[in-house]
């Protein structure tokens, strides 16, 4: 078996995690907003589900997604098991509860009079939500960062749903595990350092946007 160049594995890791983060952010921020602001029926139950989702081990999420996507599973016809798209679905399932929970807390921590003040100033529902997101932009960015961190660092679901197939679904974390199991610690450490650098670069980028916003608001 020819070893895949590391940059390809790295690119796949970044693609899977960033795509999952974007999708999970869209889902999580929307759901978190609905839970924080709208009087949804079953809100308490949904909040409990979200909080549980934040604490579920990623390998369990991976197992559930794998069972759903398995050839004989309920979504088997979609042929997503052992594919990058399947891995993205698993990572979305992992990151969404986290982003939802942080969004909900961020919006609930805004001054309580702010939504009704904005409504009384004539904001419609869309304008109101948009403005509240802008007000909570720093914790919302933190939510996305946490979601990305969760996605890029997890190994259980990537193995169960992706299968660690060389040249197709192997990502940095599964490559590290494989190298360690083969006793190739040096390679594993190199992969680990590269993964660390990737996480550092993405988070630094988001943190710099976040801090710029914080400094402006303070001055």
């Amino acid at each position: 078996m020819t070893a895949e160049p590391v940059y390809e594995v790295l690119a796949r890791s970044a693609t899977v995690s960033l795509t999952a983060t974007v999708i999970a952010s869209l889902l999580g921020i929307s759901l978190g907003t609905a839970l924080a602001l709208a009087g949804l029926p079953g809100r308490r139950l949904l909040t409990a589900v979200v909080n549980t989702g934040m604490a579920v081990p990623t390998v369990v999420v991976g197992l559930i997604v794998a069972l759903l996507l398995w050839r004989s599973g309920p979504l088997g016809d979609l042929n997503l098991i052992y594919t990058v798209r399947g891995m993205i679905i698993a990572q979305v399932a992992i990151a969404t509860p986290l982003i939802t929970g942080i969004t909900m807390a961020a919006l609930q921590l805004l001054p309580p009079e702010l939504p009704e003040q904005l409504r009384s100033l004539g904001a419609n529902r869309r304008q109101l939500v948009l403005r509240l997101w802008i007000e909570a932009r720093l914790p919302l960015l933190a939510a996305a960062m946490a979601g990305f961190g969760h996605a890029i660092s997890e190994v259980g679901s990537a193995t169960l749903v992706g299968g660690n197939i060389h040249g197709q679904t192997q990502v940095m974390t599964t490559a590290i595990v494989e190298n360690v199991s083969r006793g190739e610690f040096g390679t594993a450490i190199v992969y680990g350092v590269i993964l660390l650098v990737l996480a550092f670069v993405v988070n630094s980028l988001l943190a710099s946007i976040q801090q710029r916003g914080a400094v402006w608001a303070r001055n």
């Binding site: 001054p111 009079e113 702010l114 009384s120 100033l121 802008i134 007000e135």
Partner: peptide, 17 residues
Amino acid sequence: LLRRTAYVTQRAGLLST
């Protein structure tokens, strides 16, 4: 109707801009 009234709350409630 909301746009015919203006409500100034006890706390200024200004936005971070």
